[in-house]
Design a protein around this nucleic acid. Structure first.
Lengths: 151, 151
DNA sequence: GGTGAAATCTACCTAGG
DNA sequence: CCTAGGTAGATTTCACC
């Protein structure tokens, strides 16, 4: 189980995982050994799934971010499998979910420019036999991007 | 500028930032010092925006993930400002964007259960004077969650 | 590309409730 | 007996050669 100190620790590490055990101990008013041990426990018990570098999309030239809603033509298991496979083959699709409501899939994509986004829609998504309708919504502003989980 | 090795390095660190310079050197067929120096450069030049711990939503009891589309009643600067402030005060809203198309905002939320999601919609979003319409789509399955950026 | 000092992690040990 | 704080060896980073 997690106590309030664990939650603070998770929050801190979500913001910056380079914080040392000493830093964490200072923030949470405990010794470095204690802070380090807590972190180890959170890792071992699966609360911390991993550590990742956050890359700046802008610096990579990925200036167009969009959400794409997909409606399938027919809902067969094979269609779903095919489409899921497709999402995994395209690197610019960085997230994909099945949702309740009208649309069957929501894709989150990062593209270099509008042309690349259009290519994805026109050359990859729409031609797929299982896909019936595609609606892309381009991100204009990131109001609150990639915040940590509420802990 | 980035060469193919830099891109491989970014890809590797996006998957696991605990890889040491030695690990990276082994993967990319270069010395540890060279790999470490490249990483330093990528950090200094802003390609790597930071390092974060990835926390498991399930382990935290955040079992309901949803996307919420918001239509504003009127599009004034004050409305926008108010609403943006609101998104920042609620921790369960982990992302918010303004989009092209019908909806004015897209929110990404993590909630403990459906009741918490309903509370957010009914008690927080709908009562807000600037908000006209709210449509939540609950995530049923994460087909491709949180993939690294295409590098 | 390699080396060494400084810092960090982690396992172990000791003290206190 | 369990939890907290401290210590030493091993690893890693980073500035310099």
């Amino acid at each position: 189980m997690l106590d309030p100190v664990d939650l603070q620790l998770l929050a801190a590490l979500q913001r910056d995982s380079t914080l040392t055990a000493q830093d964490l101990g200072g923030m949470l008013h405990m010794s470095a050994s204690q802070a380090g041990r807590r972190r180890q426990r959170l890792e071992a018990e699966g609360y911390i799934a991993g550590y990742r570098a956050h890359v700046s999309p802008e610096k990579l030239g990925l200036s167009v971010q969009a959400f794409i809603q997909i409606v399938m033509a027919t809902h067969t298991a094979q269609n779903a499998k095919d489409f899921i496979r497709l999402t995994h083959t395209k690197a610019e699709i960085v997230g994909a979910w099945t949702l309740t409501g009208d649309a069957d899939y929501l894709l989150r994509v990062y593209c270099a420019d509008l042309a690349a986004l259009n290519d994805l829609v026109q050359q990859v998504l729409l031609p797929h036999p299982a896909v019936s309708r595609v609606q892309s919504q381009i991100v204009m502003e990131r109001v609150k991007p990639d915040a940590p989980l509420p802990v």
